[in-house]
Computed example of a mutant assay.
Amino acid sequence: MTEAAASAGKKIVLVAAAALVDSDGRVLICRRPQGKQLAGLWEFPGGKVEPGETPEACLIRELDEELGIQVKEACLAPFVFASHGYDSFHLLMPLYLCRRWDGFVTAREHEALAWVRPDKLSEYPMPPADEPLVAYLRDFL
Protein backbone atom coordinates (compact mmCIF):
# COMPACT_ATOMS: atom_id res chain seq x y z
CA MET A 1 0.00 0.00 0.00
CA THR A 2 1.35 3.43 -0.89
CA GLU A 3 1.78 6.14 1.75
CA ALA A 4 -0.94 8.16 0.00
CA ALA A 5 -3.36 5.25 0.26
CA ALA A 6 -2.42 4.63 3.89
CA SER A 7 -3.06 8.32 4.72
CA ALA A 8 -6.44 8.45 2.99
CA GLY A 9 -9.22 9.22 5.44
CA LYS A 10 -6.90 10.41 8.21
CA LYS A 11 -7.35 13.81 9.80
CA ILE A 12 -5.01 16.41 8.27
CA VAL A 13 -3.11 18.43 10.86
CA LEU A 14 -1.62 21.75 9.74
CA VAL A 15 1.58 22.71 11.55
CA ALA A 16 3.65 25.78 10.66
CA ALA A 17 7.42 25.73 11.21
CA ALA A 18 10.26 28.20 10.83
CA ALA A 19 13.87 27.85 9.84
CA LEU A 20 15.42 30.72 11.78
CA VAL A 21 18.69 31.62 10.05
CA ASP A 22 21.26 33.68 11.95
CA SER A 23 23.84 36.08 10.52
CA ASP A 24 26.38 33.21 10.26
CA GLY A 25 23.99 31.14 8.11
CA ARG A 26 23.19 28.66 10.91
CA VAL A 27 19.69 27.25 11.40
CA LEU A 28 17.99 26.91 14.79
CA ILE A 29 16.67 23.49 15.77
CA CYS A 30 14.96 22.55 19.04
CA ARG A 31 14.97 19.27 20.96
CA ARG A 32 11.51 18.01 21.94
CA PRO A 33 11.18 17.68 25.73
CA GLN A 34 10.62 14.47 27.65
CA GLY A 35 6.96 13.59 28.05
CA LYS A 36 5.99 14.80 24.58
CA GLN A 37 5.47 12.65 21.52
CA LEU A 38 8.78 12.18 19.65
CA ALA A 39 10.72 13.34 22.75
CA GLY A 40 14.44 13.84 22.26
CA LEU A 41 14.21 14.46 18.52
CA TRP A 42 15.28 17.77 16.98
CA GLU A 43 12.75 19.87 15.08
CA PHE A 44 12.20 23.28 13.57
CA PRO A 45 10.30 25.61 15.92
CA GLY A 46 6.60 26.15 15.30
CA GLY A 47 3.33 24.53 16.14
CA LYS A 48 -0.20 23.57 15.30
CA VAL A 49 -2.28 26.12 13.41
CA GLU A 50 -5.41 26.87 15.43
CA PRO A 51 -8.87 27.18 13.79
CA GLY A 52 -9.23 30.57 12.09
CA GLU A 53 -5.47 31.22 12.33
CA THR A 54 -3.13 31.65 9.37
CA PRO A 55 0.20 29.76 9.30
CA GLU A 56 2.00 33.11 9.61
CA ALA A 57 -0.05 34.17 12.66
CA CYS A 58 0.61 30.75 14.17
CA LEU A 59 4.36 31.18 13.77
CA ILE A 60 4.33 34.69 15.24
CA ARG A 61 2.47 33.28 18.28
CA GLU A 62 4.52 30.08 18.60
CA LEU A 63 7.92 31.75 18.20
CA ASP A 64 7.01 34.16 21.00
CA GLU A 65 5.69 31.36 23.25
CA GLU A 66 8.49 28.85 22.54
CA LEU A 67 11.51 31.09 22.07
CA GLY A 68 10.62 34.53 23.43
CA ILE A 69 11.20 36.32 20.11
CA GLN A 70 8.97 38.66 18.15
CA VAL A 71 8.65 38.16 14.41
CA LYS A 72 6.84 40.32 11.88
CA GLU A 73 4.81 38.62 9.16
CA ALA A 74 6.89 40.39 6.49
CA CYS A 75 9.96 38.53 7.79
CA LEU A 76 8.44 35.08 7.19
CA ALA A 77 9.21 33.82 3.69
CA PRO A 78 7.38 30.64 2.55
CA PHE A 79 10.06 28.14 1.56
CA VAL A 80 8.98 24.50 1.23
CA PHE A 81 6.51 22.11 2.85
CA ALA A 82 6.38 18.61 4.23
CA SER A 83 3.52 16.15 3.80
CA HIS A 84 3.84 13.07 5.99
CA GLY A 85 1.49 10.32 7.11
CA TYR A 86 1.77 9.36 10.77
CA ASP A 87 -0.19 6.45 12.27
CA SER A 88 -3.19 8.50 13.42
CA PHE A 89 -3.06 11.65 11.25
CA HIS A 90 -1.51 13.22 8.18
CA LEU A 91 0.78 16.19 8.77
CA LEU A 92 1.01 19.12 6.37
CA MET A 93 3.81 21.46 7.43
CA PRO A 94 4.85 24.61 5.58
CA LEU A 95 8.38 25.70 6.46
CA TYR A 96 9.15 29.41 6.41
CA LEU A 97 12.57 31.05 6.34
CA CYS A 98 13.11 33.82 8.87
CA ARG A 99 16.28 35.91 9.10
CA ARG A 100 15.01 38.81 11.24
CA TRP A 101 13.41 38.87 14.68
CA ASP A 102 13.46 40.94 17.85
CA GLY A 103 14.61 39.56 21.17
CA PHE A 104 16.97 36.79 22.22
CA VAL A 105 16.23 33.16 21.41
CA THR A 106 15.56 31.31 24.68
CA ALA A 107 14.44 27.70 25.23
CA ARG A 108 11.09 28.15 26.97
CA GLU A 109 9.45 24.84 25.98
CA HIS A 110 12.26 22.74 24.54
CA GLU A 111 14.88 20.58 26.23
CA ALA A 112 17.69 22.24 24.24
CA LEU A 113 18.41 24.54 21.30
CA ALA A 114 21.18 24.30 18.71
CA TRP A 115 22.37 26.65 15.96
CA VAL A 116 23.53 24.29 13.21
CA ARG A 117 25.18 24.79 9.83
CA PRO A 118 22.85 23.49 7.08
CA ASP A 119 25.33 20.79 6.00
CA LYS A 120 25.36 19.41 9.59
CA LEU A 121 21.56 19.27 10.15
CA SER A 122 21.39 15.65 9.00
CA GLU A 123 23.55 14.68 12.01
CA TYR A 124 20.63 15.46 14.36
CA PRO A 125 17.81 12.88 14.68
CA MET A 126 14.52 14.49 13.58
CA PRO A 127 10.87 13.49 13.28
CA PRO A 128 10.08 11.86 9.92
CA ALA A 129 8.23 14.95 8.66
CA ASP A 130 11.22 17.26 9.34
CA GLU A 131 13.94 15.06 7.82
CA PRO A 132 13.17 15.75 4.11
CA LEU A 133 13.34 19.52 4.73
CA VAL A 134 17.02 19.32 5.65
CA ALA A 135 18.15 18.72 2.06
CA TYR A 136 16.25 21.77 0.83
CA LEU A 137 17.86 23.97 3.47
CA ARG A 138 21.32 22.55 2.79
CA ASP A 139 21.00 23.17 -0.96
CA PHE A 140 19.43 26.64 -0.63
CA LEU A 141 21.53 28.09 2.16
Rank of each mutant, 00 (worst) to 15 (best):
V27M: 02
P51C: 05
G52R: 09
V21H: 06
P51F: 02
V49M: 00
I29K: 05
K48T: 10
P33G: 04
D22I: 08
A18E: 10
E53H: 06
P33Q: 12
V21I: 15
D24C: 07
I29R: 08
E50M: 05
L41W: 02
R31A: 03
I29E: 09
F44R: 01
G35R: 09
L38I: 01
F44H: 07
G52L: 06
C30G: 01
V21K: 11
F44C: 10
Q37E: 13
A19D: 07
L38T: 01
D24A: 15
R31Q: 15
G46Q: 03
V27D: 05
V27G: 04
G25D: 13
G25Y: 15
R26I: 13
I29S: 12
G47F: 06
E53I: 02
G40K: 11
R31I: 00
G25E: 14
L28N: 10
F44W: 11
C30Q: 11
W42Y: 09
L41S: 06
E53Y: 06
S23K: 11
D24S: 15
G40I: 14
L41M: 12
Q34S: 04
G47M: 15
L38W: 11
G46E: 01
V49H: 04
L28F: 02
C30L: 01
V21F: 09
G40Y: 10
W42I: 03
A18P: 07
D22E: 07
V49Y: 03
P51N: 02
E53V: 10
R31M: 07
P51G: 09
E43D: 08
R32Q: 11
G25S: 13
L20G: 05
R32M: 07
G35E: 12
G47K: 12
E50N: 05
F44D: 09
L20W: 03
P33A: 15
V49T: 05
K48C: 02
G40M: 10
G35Q: 12
Q37V: 04
E43C: 15
R26M: 10
E50Y: 01
C30E: 08
E53F: 02
R26L: 07
S23Q: 04
R31W: 00
D24N: 12
I29F: 03
G52C: 02
C30I: 00
C30T: 14
A39H: 14
G35D: 07
R32K: 15
R32F: 08
D24G: 14
R31F: 00
R32V: 15
G52M: 04
L38H: 14
S23E: 14
G47H: 02
G47N: 07
D22P: 13
G25A: 12
L41P: 00
Q34W: 01
P51Y: 03
V49C: 05
G40S: 07
V49W: 03
E43S: 15
L28Y: 02
P45D: 01
G25C: 15
E43M: 10
F44E: 04
W42T: 05
V27T: 11
E43K: 11
P33F: 05
A19Y: 04
D24P: 00
I29H: 08
G52A: 07
A19N: 12
R31C: 06
G52T: 13
D24Y: 08
D22L: 11
K36M: 08
L28R: 06
P45V: 06
R32A: 05
A18R: 13
L28V: 02
I29Q: 08
V27H: 13
Q34P: 01
W42G: 13
G40V: 08
E53L: 00
G52S: 06
K36L: 11
I29M: 03
F44N: 12
G25K: 12
